[in-house]
Each structure stands twice: as C-alpha cells, then as structure tokens.
Write a protein that binds this DNA or RNA. Sequence first.
DNA 1: CGCTAGCTTGACATTCTTCAACCGGAGTGG
DNA 2: CCACTCCGGTTGAAGAATGTCAAGCTAGCG
Lengths: 216, 216
Amino acid sequence: MEHLEAIKYYRNYEAGQTIVWAGDKMDFVASVVHGVAALTQTMEDGRRQMVGLLLPSDFLGRPNREHASYDVTATTDLQLCCFRRQPFQDLLTNTPHVSQRLLEMTLDELDAAREWMLLLGRKTAREKIASFLSIIARRDATINQTGNNGSLAFDLPLTREAMADYLGLTLETVSRQMSGLKRDGVIRLEGKRHIVIPDFDMLMNETGDDADGGVF
Amino acid sequence: MEHLEAIKYYRNYEAGQTIVWAGDKMDFVASVVHGVAALTQTMEDGRRQMVGLLLPSDFLGRPNREHASYDVTATTDLQLCCFRRQPFQDLLTNTPHVSQRLLEMTLDELDAAREWMLLLGRKTAREKIASFLSIIARRDATINQTGNNGSLAFDLPLTREAMADYLGLTLETVSRQMSGLKRDGVIRLEGKRHIVIPDFDMLMNETGDDADGGVF
DNA sequence: CGCTAGCTTGACATTCTTCAACCGGAGTGG
DNA sequence: CCACTCCGGTTGAAGAATGTCAAGCTAGCG
C-alpha cells in the first residue's frame, strides 16, 4: 500500500481544461481528489456524448492500455492524484486485493453506465433533468442540509452544454426543462448554477424511477 | 483452473425464457456457451431498455452480489456454463489472475457500454440500426463469407421488439428503418431474420462512426 | 462602458412515437 | 384438410417531443 504512496504525485487543472484527448498516450492513471472530470466521445460531425462523470474518489485510466479511449476534460477546477502507469501496473499484478478493489469499482461504474443507458434510451427530457439533478444531489459529498427542513442545496458542476452532453439533449432543451422544473416548484435556482431542492421526494417523482429504493 | 472444472455445470434455456428477474436471488455465475442472452431494465410504466447483450464467452453475474440487478432473458436458445457462487468467489480471492482476467472483461464491457451510450444519446434511428447490424455482424463468430466477394450474412438473434429495446426505439421505427436500409440496398432480408450485407463499407457509412478504425 | 460566455426564450422544422390496420406463416382444433 | 388464431412483422396517418435557428438577456470583466 505504501508503494502507492511512493509513486504518487498531484496535478491540477482549471475548469474547462482538457486533460487528454482520445487516442493520446496517457502515461499515468489517477484518482480524483476534488473537482469533477468528464469523459466524452465525439462523432465526426461534432455530435458529442458524455460517457463518464468522475467525482472525487473515482478512478481515471485503464490498466494495460497506453492510450486514452475518450476525451477527458475538467468541468470544474480539478485535482488528480496520479500514479505513473508502469509502477501502478506492477503493483496491480503483485497485490491481488488492489486488483479486486479495482474490479469492484469497475463493476460499480458498469452499473452506473447501465442506469445511464436507461436514462438515454427511454426517459423524457424532463425525467432526464430530474434524474441528473438527483444523481448530483446524492453523489455530492457536500450535502448541505440548508433548511432545517429536508431541503437540499448544491452547485451544478456542469454548464448547460455539458449537461446536454450528459443527457443526450441539446442545451436549449436542458434550459427549457430547467425552467419548467423551476416554474413547477420542483427546484429553485439561485444564480445559474446553484440549485435548491425544497422537497427531494417531489424531485424523485419526476425522475421516472421507482419511488422506493427498489430491491437490487 | 481445474478447480473451475470441478464446480461447473450446464443449464439450457429456450428462446424467450427468463433466466432471472431483477432482484431475484442468483446462486450462480455463468459463462455463455452458445446462444444469446439479454439484460434489461424495466420502468414502472413498462418502458424497457436493454443494457447488456451476452454472446458466447461473455460472463453473467456479479461476484459478491447475491441478487440480480437486471432481468436476464434468453433471446435465442441458450446454454450457460454455470458455477456455484460461493466456490467461484473463493476461487476469485485465491487466484489473482482470474480476478485480473475478470477485470479485463469488465473493462471491455464498460467500453462497450460507453459506445452504446453514444448510440443511445446521439445517433439517429437509421444510424442506430446500422450500428447494431455492424456490431452483430462483427461479433457473430459464424462470420459466413457467403459470397466469395466481401458479402456477409447472419441471423438476427433478436426480435424487432428486442432490437427496439436495445436501441431505445419503438419496434415500428425499427421496422421502418430496416425497410429503409433494404430499399436503399444496404442490406438484403431473406425472411425476417436472415440478413445479407452485400457491402460492409456501405453499412459502416450508415453508422455515423469514423470510417477508419480510429486510433484508440 | 461595451464584450463575451453562458444562458433563456420564441418560432418553426424534423424526427420519432402512437394508434391503428393489415399481412403472412406456423401451429391447432374441428 | 381447412378455418382459425396468434405472433412477429410491416405500413400508414396523425400527433407529440425534441431539435434547429435566431434573437435577446445577464453577469462578470477587461
């Protein structure tokens, strides 16, 4: 474990900065310390789809693959804890339960990707927005219980355009649906980026997901 | 390795049969021997999205999780090679490079899921169909070079409805787009299920993907 | 003070879905 | 053997959701 310590170093990026382009050589793997990074794919004609959203503690990079498969950009100011590839891979082969831990994390990501596929394939624009907000609200470590009632508040880590890329929508549709949820009292907007959720259940009702946590 | 041999057994299913329901206890993991299985999620109101398509050699089930996360159904006649969960998990902890192998497979699945997300979020109906056909054509082990020219033929392992669930479309749209591709000479239909692709490049041009293999 | 980036809103176009009818082959029972 | 029905598939017409194009707003900043 301390081996990891020995080979780690930090990198910082500003909001909007690109970390690597798809196809670039990537000589490190990393873990997000704070901030948010996005993986996106781009088609020849410019259509873009986000395929990964990395929050603190998430892992970036693929063992045994030198080249990045996706564009990686910082959507907020970002700090990564990096490990040079080769030492990390050595560690991986020599330390079974590191690779078992990584397997667990990858399986969780796969589950998240599948949830995301349901969103992309079958949800309406309004459900997509509500789902996205609930995901951010839940994953955001800084769950500020602002009101002593059950109300929740957080900052969006993404521009409207990045949200559109996440959700498979246009930024105009994102904007309209945000306005719609605001008009209906499901969310409050303080500035463009700060969201207040007066009643989390009301938001959940808009996601299209099962109300109860659902047995897995 | 021979330990795996000791705990394996086979199960067979007919096309259309359900293997497990989401939430059910699943006391085994398995590998597909032949046939095709689908993982699907269903929303309360019945909307469905396929989130996994398992072809021969693909792995089914999640280590350290007793309960299935998705509905699993056989879309063709199917044979699974099953391993009881507990012995398999023991093997996994005792045999590092089994878990490393499983990690590689999971990462491949994650990449596939991300490709699928691009399809769901950004491709047109016609591109979705063309992409699906090219995926099946490529993954189909029985790549029958029927013509001595470069033409390709295979049977669809899915009904139109299952294709719709895969692609995030309605079955009517699937049907229309299939007719469209047929009308334009991109595919030939012999019966409802047998597809002939006279010119694979022509099909690829319809997928929206980069023409060249693209550096990864 | 005027710019720019990010965002909102409106009007219109397009794509896909919905609802409905119909087709054809395989199996079934009279 | 024939009629029947069911299932998977196709096709058409109409409507709804989302995208496109265009204009305009606002806050922050040089």
